[in-house]
Computed example of a mutant assay.
Amino acid sequence: MIQKLKKIFASAPVSEPENAFEPTELACACLLTHAALQDGTLEPQEQEAMARLLGQRFKLDNVKAEALLETARGHVAQSVEMYGITRDIKDALAHDERLGLMEMLWQVVYADGELHDYEANLMRRIAGLIYVSDRESGEARKRALRALGILE
């Protein structure tokens, strides 16, 4: 399974050595980047949220989190295909870890203070692809909104 993730990302150029990041770290960073770019712009708040969330989740310092995001941006720029990434994430992460990923994704799409229609559509698609129910995704959304101070 990890070998599958390595194959997916092996063909794209990266700014870090190929083995600098775990495949799951890179896959999650790619999904976060894809979500952040869904509305057509990468806002500074989204960039900061992604770096903070990846740093917390994978215990990376700020420099390493930024390097991971830079690598992910390169992969996302070269490929619009999400099915393989989400399939491998579904296989590599336990259900509670996938719920945590959904919460991270919700925090990124709401980092700029609004939810674009394309972002909402992407979130539904990702939830289905990683086997997270609509109800669970909604609960993750509420947790994310509370964490951002948008929802009491």
Rank of each mutant, 00 (worst) to 15 (best):
F21S: 09
F21E: 02
E22V: 04
P23H: 11
P23Q: 04
L26N: 01
L26S: 05
C28N: 03
C28H: 02
C28R: 14
A29C: 10
A29Y: 05
C30W: 09
C30A: 15
C30N: 10
C30G: 07
L31H: 12
L32H: 02
H34R: 11
H34I: 09
H34K: 14
A35H: 07
A35K: 06
A35G: 08
A36D: 00
L37I: 04
L37C: 12
Q38C: 12
Q38N: 14
Q38V: 05
D39Y: 01
D39R: 05
G40S: 08
T41K: 13
L42T: 03
L42F: 07
E43K: 11
P44R: 05
P44E: 04
P44G: 01
Q45H: 09
Q45P: 06
Q47C: 13
Q47Y: 07
L53M: 10
G55F: 00
Q56K: 09
R57N: 14
R57M: 15
L60A: 04
D61M: 06
D61K: 11
N62I: 14
V63G: 06
V63L: 13
K64C: 03
E66Q: 10
E66S: 07
A67E: 12
A67M: 12
L68Q: 03
L68W: 05
L69C: 13
L69V: 12
E70C: 05
E70T: 15
T71G: 13
R73W: 06
R73M: 13
R73I: 03
G74E: 09
H75P: 03
H75Q: 03
H75A: 15
H75M: 11
H75S: 14
H75L: 10
A77H: 03
A77M: 15
Q78K: 12
S79T: 00
S79G: 10
